[in-house]
Nucleic acid binder design. Structure first.
Lengths: 358, 358
DNA sequence: CTGAAAGCGCTTACAG
DNA sequence: CTGAAAGCGCTTACAG
């Protein structure tokens, strides 16, 4: 640094990289009250009161002064203080199988957005569908004193939910349903039926299902709807052609491989998840079969890239973002003491090249 | 319900659906101390003291009794109380462009895991790379009294980071670098070079780059590395063949379309992001071009589905999960007052069918 | 080693 | 409408 440059440096400037100046301590309510010349309790009432006219919590000008000072100082109430006093955290815990699953990530975006609107912050944790981790993360959330939970990773067997309910923790389910607990899901049975109808209409009789995880209502319901629609049309799907799989590309690949291993390939496959469908396409490709020409493939969810694949994917669209939004709505009502009904959202079949509808 | 069934119902049982019994109030430190027959401060010292032998904070048996009772009651300290007293929340705020981007979701998994190990919980928020939202979410995090922040959405122009730094908020960057702030990134310049070398080795001279967002160091560095390696081999990429794009399939599709619109198609395309590469493949497909045969395509990151696409995608693998883990390590050291160096992790080229390496 | 006290920041009956 | 006080659950000097 030259002498001239040093000259230019304001005296007392911190070395580069260090915080510029000792950051001013965050203002507290006491600071605001003091500056406004009122008691801290008055400041609290003003700042918390509805700014609607209605009942005023302080004199006009006094209230205005308090609000102005708070705004100018950038005062935000310390949630530790508030939480300690009110025993509420305005925190919602969200458990999902995996956020790397774009389906859950999209649902979570809906949750995040709706929560912010409702005045809540959200905590999210991946559980990998592992019951041990589900327990551990739930305990962690509770230790953080969340006001409520949203489970995106419910097991169809609702044992853990029963326990959690018994502990008096309010929660709702999203994406998957279980027991009689409040939930927001896609009408997966219907979705499965739509997939079946589409394939049946195209003359397919030789079908396979990549059914997803045996503990997830999504996969179970989609598979059940699919098989029911087939049966109603007099088409039987052999048991060895209905195989459980993980909800990702690797899972779909393995399951498809398994189907191909047991005999002649089916003419059509329904994968209960888009990524499993993509994995299935990979397995078909490796077996020398062209998806959409040799074997029709239907996925589920209509994730954004489904339309962009080299062979675009026919799939059943589910309102992922909306599910998240509605789940928060449901939770807010439940927290208000309301009894809430399960919500079922509508699926929509989107035909594309993988079933010959280029 | 029959009379017999009603009989079977234990008296005072709650109606089904309601919480089974008034949940016992959470035990506090006072409860534990009372039950152990010690003062609350003693209980605090025992429960917080390192369980290592070293310095004992209480008599052997007394300490054991306190711990036993705490465990039996399932006592967990109320973070509001602790936070109020210690002025630390053990909370880390994480800002990402979008969690639906599997790259960021994977990085976040690393962050979540490493944070838990380090005794922190994490708060994530999507900012959509919108400066307004970045500000708002950062303020929200600070209002929640996070101890520190991790930015996964840094702008190369570090203005907002400068402001945040000036406020004395500790943070590190992940995925993208900016200014001289501590960061954990992939060596993106090198990654771009690897992509170029691969294409050049295959004899390609007619190249295009889908360069990502102009404000993200990832896209900028990958593009710079790619172009530098080309120039060193005497290959010039015309300006109209280097086009910015969003980091998703739609972005890649649009950008590819733009390249195709200006003249004869290039023989090879480097997309700085796998999803953009997939979108590019969609655009090529629609233009009657077969990726990997007519036009080589290279992506970046090696997301799991890259290998499973009907035409598997050649791509530069980046250590996404590891980036998250290392970012937390860096942050912890920074919180301990250490001066931390930027971390650069190694990329790896993975050749596949989209560049004719089936 | 242990207890008693103070206080972190906030809200909410309780008086006036 | 406003102030004074109590207390949410915790940790940490301070004595002893």
């Amino acid at each position: 640094m030259s002498a001239a440059e040093r000259e230019a440096q304001p005296p007392g400037a911190a070395p580069p990289g260090a915080a510029q100046c000792e950051a001013a301590p965050r203002p507290t309510l006491r600071t605001v009250a003091h500056l406004a010349g009122v008691h801290v309790s008055t400041a609290s009432r003003v700042l918390n009161g509805t700014s609607d006219a209605g009942v005023r919590s302080a004199g006009q000008e006094k209230a205005a002064r308090i609000r102005a000072i708070a705004a100018q100082l950038g005062y935000t109430p310390d949630p530790h203080g508030t939480g300690l006093r009110t025993q509420r955290s305005h925190l919602i815990g969200v458990l999902v199988p995996r956020l790397v699953d774009i389906v859950l990530a999209t649902i979570y975006e809906g949750i995040e957005q709706a929560s912010a609107t409702a005045g809540f912050s959200t905590f999210v944790a991946n559980t990998g569908d592992d019951p041990q981790v589900q327990r551990a993360r739930t305990s962690m959330m509770l230790a953080r004193r969340v006001d409520a939970l949203i489970f995106g990773d419910a097991y169809a067997d609702a044992r853990f939910l029963d326990e959690t309910d018994a502990r008096g923790v309010p929660f709702v389910l999203v994406s998957r349903r279980a027991g009689d607990y409040p939930s927001v899901t896609c009408d997966d049975d219907l979705g499965g039926r739509l997939a079946a109808q589409h394939l049946l209409e195209q003359g397919h009789r030789d079908l396979a299902v990549l059914a997803g995880e045996p503990y997830a209502s999504t996969g179970l319901d989609r598979t059940a709807g699919f098989l029911a629609a087939c049966a109603e049309s007099g088409v039987q799907v052999p048991e060895c052609r209905v195989v459980f799989c993980h909800f990702d590309t690797a899972g779909g690949r393995t399951a498809m491989q398994q189907v191909l291993d047991v005999g002649a390939p089916p003419t059509a496959v329904f994968a209960v998840n888009d990524f499993a469908a993509i994995g299935a396409m990979g397995a078909l490709r490796d077996a020398g079969l062209v998806p959409g020409r040799d074997v029709a493939v239907v996925g589920y969810n209509d994730v954004p890239l489904a339309a962009e694949l080299p062979i675009s994917l026919t799939t059943v669209r589910s309102p992922m973002h909306q599910m998240g939004v509605r789940a928060v709505e449901l939770l807010v009502r439940r927290l208000a003491g309301e009894a809430v009904p399960p919500v079922l959202l509508e699926p929509l079949l989107v035909p594309r090249a993988s079933t010959g509808c280029a």
